[in-house]
Design a protein around this nucleic acid. Sequence first.
DNA 1: AAGAAAAATAAAAACGTTTTTATTTTGGGC
DNA 2: GCCCAAAATAAAAACGTTTTTATTTTTCTT
Lengths: 357, 357
Amino acid sequence: MATEMHRARRAPTPTIKTLAEMTGYSIATISKALRESPVVAPATRDIIYKAAREVGYQANARGMALRTGKSFQAAVLMPVTAARDYEWDGVEYTQTLSGISQALEGTDYRMSVHVIRDAADGADAARRIVDQGLADGLIFSGILAEDPRIDLLVAEHFPFVSMGRCRKELDYAHVDIDNEWAAHAATARLVAGGHRRIALVNPERRLSYALDRIDGFVRAFREAGLDAPMDLIAEGDLSTHFGRQTVIDFLQRDDAPTAFVCINESTTLGVLSGLGSLGRQVGVDVDVIAYDDINVSAYFTPPITTFYQPIEVLGRTLGQFLLRRMEGEDPKALRQVFRPTLIARQPDNLGGRLTQN
Amino acid sequence: MATEMHRARRAPTPTIKTLAEMTGYSIATISKALRESPVVAPATRDIIYKAAREVGYQANARGMALRTGKSFQAAVLMPVTAARDYEWDGVEYTQTLSGISQALEGTDYRMSVHVIRDAADGADAARRIVDQGLADGLIFSGILAEDPRIDLLVAEHFPFVSMGRCRKELDYAHVDIDNEWAAHAATARLVAGGHRRIALVNPERRLSYALDRIDGFVRAFREAGLDAPMDLIAEGDLSTHFGRQTVIDFLQRDDAPTAFVCINESTTLGVLSGLGSLGRQVGVDVDVIAYDDINVSAYFTPPITTFYQPIEVLGRTLGQFLLRRMEGEDPKALRQVFRPTLIARQPDNLGGRLTQN
DNA sequence: AAGAAAAATAAAAACGTTTTTATTTTGGGC
DNA sequence: GCCCAAAATAAAAACGTTTTTATTTTTCTT
C-alpha cells in the first residue's frame, strides 16, 4: 500500500480530470468541492477529498491563474545599485523580504522578486508586471520625489504599497519611516551636546527621503537658532565605501565636522573604517549616530548610538497592506509611518570634551 | 496623436483577439508572426508587428504559461533563520539574488523567492513548486549532508542547481565553494604562524559544508603533525550574536584560543565585537581570519585577513547553470567549485608575539 | 490553362481550472 | 402520485496563448 502510494506519486501529475475518472463526478463539481462551495453536498465533497488525497492532487497554478485572472504573486522590486565591488549593498533587503514573506504565509500569494538597477529599470519593470499579468500587486522602495512608478500604478488602479512617500499629494498605500523626525532628533542631540559642525551622510536628493532628512537636519539647527552647515551634507550611493570616503574627504577640511549623522549601517561602517584609518577615535575625536534597519550597530567597536526600526516589521506591514489592497481596500486606510527608537550607546558631546552652549 | 496613443493605453489590455480585429488575420497567424515563425510571410508579419506596437500588445504570461506548460520562473529558496532579534542574517542573499537575476536578464525567465525557515520548510516548498507548476527550475543553498530536496528533485527529474553539495554520490548540477580547502588554508596559516589553540567558528554539523570545514581544519593540524583542538569547534546559527558569544565563552577558558577562523562576515563582526568588549586587541592578543561573501572585512577595524569569493559571481553561475539545465543539458556538465582568494591584511602570528615552531 | 507542390493562412484543439448556465434529482406539500 | 421549489450535479463556456490539423492561395512546371 505504501509502495503503491509512492508509485501513484510518480504517475503523470494528477489533474481534475484524473479525479473525475476516479469518482465519476464532473470536473465542475470537483472544482467546487475542492473550493468548499456550499452548493456541493457534504457526502460528495468527502468522496472527492478522499480521491484528491489518494493521488496527491494539487491545483495547477497555471490553470488557476488564467481562469481567475490572478497570478497570485506579490512582486517586489529590489534595488541593487551598480555600487563598487560587490560590497555591502541592500543587505537589509533580506529582512525586508523575510517580513513580506511572513505576511504572505498562509495565503495563496507567493513573492516574486525583480531586481532593478536604476529608476528607469524600475519603471520598466512596473510597466511589464502590469501589462503581462506577472503579479497581482507590487511593493517597491527607493521612492523618488517624483516617482514614475507611483504615477503609473495609481493611473492603472493597480494594487501597490510603496516603502516611502513621494512628494506629490496622491492617495496610495505606503509604509514609511519618519525620516524628517529621525534626522531632526539625531541632529538635535548633537547640537545640544555642543556640536556645530555636523555632517549628514545622506542619499541622493532625487530620493524623497533624502529631502526629508535634510529638512530634519536643517530644522534642528534652526530651532537652536543656528545656521545648518549645508556644506556638510554628503550625497551618495549608501555604500560602505561612500561612508568611508565621506569621512576621509570631510576630515581633510579646515572646518572639519566633529560629528556624523549616518543614514544606514553600511555608511556607518564606512565612517568607522575611515575614522580608524585616520587614527580618530569615536566618542573622543568624533561622535557618530547611526540608523539601523537590522540590529548591527550594537556590534560595532565601540557600540554606536542609533535610531533603530527593525525593517522586518516594515516588511510585514508592507505585505499586510498589499494583501488588503489586493482585496480592494481603500489605499487611504493603508498608510503607516514608523518612528525609530533611540538606542543611546555613546554620549553626544565627545565624552564632555565639547563645551555646552 | 500622442493623446490618442495614450488613450489606447487605457483601453482594456490588448489581447491577440484585439490584434485579429485590427488586422483581419487569424489569432493563429498572429501568434506565429509574433513568435517569428518562418511559416508567416514577411509582409504579413510587418502588418502584425505594427498593430501590436500601436496598441502596446504584450503576451499575457498566464495564457502562455498554461499552453506551454512553463511558468517561466526560476524559484530560489532563501533561508531566513529564526535568529535573534532581526539582526544580520543572510545578508549575502541580496548579492546572491542579484547575481541570479543578472543571469536571467534578457531571457524569458523571472525570479521568484520562497523564504524558508528550516529544512522541513525547504522540502515542503520544493514539493509544492514541483506539484503546482510554480516554477520551471529551482535554486537552493544550505545543503544538508543528506538533503531531502536533492533526493526529491533528482527523483522527479526537475531542473535545479544547488549552492553546495550533499554527501551522497548523485549526479546533479551544483555550484560550491571549496570549503575544505578554505578552512585548511586559513588554519594552516595560523598553525604556521605558531598558533595551536585555534577556534573554528562553524555552522551546524547537519550542513554539508560544516563537515567540509571541519575536515580542512583537522587536515591542517594533521599535516603539521599536531592534534586538532576539537573542543574549539563552535557550531551555531551564523549570526553576529553567535560569533560574539563564541568569543566570550571561549576566552573564559584556561586553555583559551589565540586565533579564530570564521565562516562569514556576520560571525566575524560578532567575534570582533566580543574581543572589543573583553578589551582584547586583534593582531595583538588574538588573530582572526574571516571569510567574505561580500567585501566587508576591509572595512572592519582593523581590516581583517580574509578568504574572499564574491557571492554575486556564484549567483550568476547558479543562474546560468539553471538556464542550461532547464534547456535539458546534462547535470554532470553543470558543476563548478570555486576557491576563494586570500586577502592578507594581518600577520598570522600576533605580530610576532608567537614563537614559530 | 491545368495540375501539382509549396507557401500561407485559418480552423480546431489543447492546456487546467473556474464560473455560468442548463439539467437532473430530491424533498415537501397537497 | 403529482407538482413545485430547492438542492445538487453536469454541460458549456471562459480565460489567452500556442500548436496541430485543415484549407486556401500562390508559385512553378508542363
